[in-house]
Amino acid sequence: MAALTIQKVNKVYNKTVHALQDITFEIQEGELFGLVGPDGAGKSTLFNILTTLLLPDSGDIQILGMDLINDYKQVRQEIGYLPGTFSLYPDLSVKENLDFFAVMYKSDIEANMDLIRPIWRQIEPFSKRKAGKLSGGMKQKLALCCALIHRPKILFLDEPTTGVDPVSRKEFWEILQTIRTQGITVLVSTPYMDEATLCDRIALIQNGKILGIDTPEAIIEHFKGTLYTFKSANIFSLLEALKRCPLQCNYYPYGEHCHIAFYEDMETAMPQFLQFLEDNQQEHGDIEPIRPSIEDCFIEIVKMNRHE
């Protein structure tokens, strides 16, 4: 059963900025769904709409069988929201924040302790500390506790790992996996492509449009080009030279490597490419085929959409 059905949702700011365009997708009950896209793609706008903070201009949203716009009061009881920025009371202690939000949701801490215990255990030693004085990771865990204290059926997390160190990020995703086992549907947004593979399904979003929705594996499966990676002594001059490359290809720097996806028959294309590099006096390391990552897929999908 679908926990969340979004149909043709539009939102325009100031009559000019089309933040969301005909967003349509479904999230199944118990799913861990990722919304992946760069900054400014419209992720936070969509979250604000889904958490009843913002009204869409048009479109229909069904959440847990309720109409999001008309039944927003009941909806609020059933959803949990972790905003992109830390927004608990910095001058209240950890415990006071938790107490406060428990009462706001007319919920009981003891009754729901089993749900949050794995997270709460980590911050309990600091329960008397002011929330504003916690480290970034701890703040995030407290915010998660507060968002879960009423045992929501759907949890919305807006870029929960942005600006968090790699170790804490990994830990946070482990927590998300355990939350899901409790039967809570999770919608999480992230600008980090590597995190996308941890979701059951992902939606790629850019400029307010959904570019593709699928499981991470299927998205990788559907990569159309043939991807290679290689090192170059001078990436900048390489990229300049590649602009003149006659082959059908898509190239971009990827860390200290260069990724290049060819849309050609490789048996004939590769020798041509090597010749091209030689003609342009480009030194390069070994050119190796590589399995595309979600990021490669995203870049390809964005590129294809631009051409359409």
């Binding site: 009061k73 609020r76 905003p83 939000f101």
Partner: peptide, 13 residues
């Protein structure tokens, strides 16, 4: 400014 009002607004209060 600090965004706590959003966190309160998503509660059923």
């Amino acid at each position: 400014e600090i965004g706590t009002i959003e966190q309160v607004n998503v509660t059923p209060i």
